[in-house]
Simulated scan of single mutants.
Amino acid sequence: MDFNNIYSVLTDKKDNKYGKRIRESRYKLAPTASAYTNFLNNLKECENELREMFDTLVKYMYENLNGFGEIIAEDGKAIQSYVRRISEKNSGNRGERDANWCQKNYTTTKPDGEKVVKTKKWFGFRLHLLSDATYEMPVDFEVTKASNSEVKETEKMLDNIKEKYSEKLEQCRYFLADKGYDSTELTEWLTTEGVSQVIDIRNMWQGEETKQFKNTNIVYAYKGKVYYIADSGEKIELIYKGYDKSRDSQRYGFHPKYHDKRIFRIPLRTDLRIFTKVARNSKKWKRLYKKRTNIERVNGRIDRDFQFEKHTIRGLKKMKMFLNITFIIQLTLAKSKIESGITNGLARYIA
């Protein structure tokens, strides 16, 4: 149909198959509210098909982007439900029966050293997201009730990736996360798979400042700093000298001003949470950990650009559907840029 025919349809005063007449010369061509609701209800039942679309687009990124999936960041995002409590049984489709409450505490330190605990409490859901920290695009995700454990859901996602998409793990070199993911089980899992974890650490020593390494003059702190205790009692901080692959150990030595060339090796198995392939007190660890902020930008786009801060979604199944579609849109836009020869700024929603 050419433009003139379209124009004649829109200005025709008689009812026709192209739309319902509202006034003498205006037609409503958009779907009605009920048609839109029926469409979403039908789409909600296509969870497997939507997930297949997502996985296909992620696979495209692995195949067409250099280094995609080498540095993966994990984060859990709170998404409040449209309602604030479990709805009554007679509330119909407008009710909420899947969400629950969650409370999360954050400890911050003021400039004067005082520790302040901030509490965040919400009723709703939680998005568990694995994202490429270089290109700021999703790799895998899961949506659960708000109270579900971030660490346990991450372990489930990683197990699923290992079972179905083992090539993703082969590509992954570094796993970034905040201290909420500091877990012995997760650390051991990543180590077994050959992935270097760059995860902030919690202090679980209950008052201890340092621990002795075997029967030596070497002691270490929970954040990875290593010290030599001299005969005089002086505590000398040692300098990180690199990872020894042949012995799976970290190497430490004295600052040149001490004129002591001894090298001390601490095996990673001493404590996998503290001694990682990328040493916690190294510049490389700090540089990699800064990349974790990229996933916060991904979450920010979900809130800002897709308006998940102000939504009317109710129900876990519907929430999964909308988030899946959100990621499909992000990846599809990136795919179109790649096919046009653009590889920078793929996460932006402009050309």
Rank of each mutant, 00 (worst) to 15 (best):
328 I>G: 06
36 Y>T: 15
20 K>E: 07
192 T>K: 14
42 N>H: 13
124 G>R: 05
89 K>H: 12
283 K>D: 15
168 K>V: 05
14 K>S: 13
224 G>Q: 02
325 I>P: 06
264 F>D: 03
335 K>R: 11
242 G>E: 14
266 I>T: 01
61 M>D: 05
258 Y>E: 06
108 T>H: 02
168 K>R: 15
42 N>Q: 13
304 R>S: 12
290 K>Q: 14
170 E>Q: 12
17 K>W: 01
44 K>H: 06
67 G>C: 13
305 D>R: 12
108 T>A: 01
226 V>D: 04
342 I>K: 12
245 K>M: 10
27 Y>E: 04
337 K>N: 07
145 K>L: 00
256 P>V: 06
307 Q>L: 12
37 T>S: 14
263 I>Y: 02
157 M>E: 01
65 L>D: 13
195 V>E: 02
193 E>M: 08
53 M>W: 14
72 I>W: 09
32 T>M: 15
50 L>E: 07
213 F>I: 11
222 Y>M: 13
218 I>E: 08
83 V>C: 01
152 K>A: 08
201 I>Y: 02
20 K>F: 04
193 E>I: 02
272 L>H: 11
345 G>K: 03
154 T>Q: 09
169 L>Q: 01
166 S>L: 03
327 F>C: 05
186 L>Q: 10
304 R>E: 15
308 F>M: 07
212 Q>P: 00
279 A>I: 07
125 F>S: 02
275 F>T: 08
248 D>E: 14
173 R>A: 07
182 D>W: 03
321 M>K: 09
176 L>A: 08
314 R>A: 10
23 R>M: 06
300 G>W: 07
21 R>Y: 00
209 E>D: 09
253 G>P: 09
158 L>H: 10
56 T>R: 14
34 S>M: 12
80 Q>N: 11
339 E>G: 05
273 R>A: 15
322 F>A: 06
309 E>L: 13
242 G>V: 08
343 T>A: 02
296 E>K: 08
259 H>M: 06
145 K>M: 10
68 F>G: 02
13 K>Y: 03
9 V>G: 02
30 A>C: 07
6 I>L: 09
187 T>I: 12
316 L>A: 12
273 R>M: 15
45 E>R: 11
126 R>C: 11
290 K>R: 14
130 L>D: 01
215 N>F: 01
32 T>F: 14
306 F>Y: 15
95 G>V: 10
327 F>E: 04
251 R>A: 10
337 K>Y: 10
39 F>R: 12
287 R>K: 09
98 D>K: 07
292 R>Y: 03
201 I>F: 01
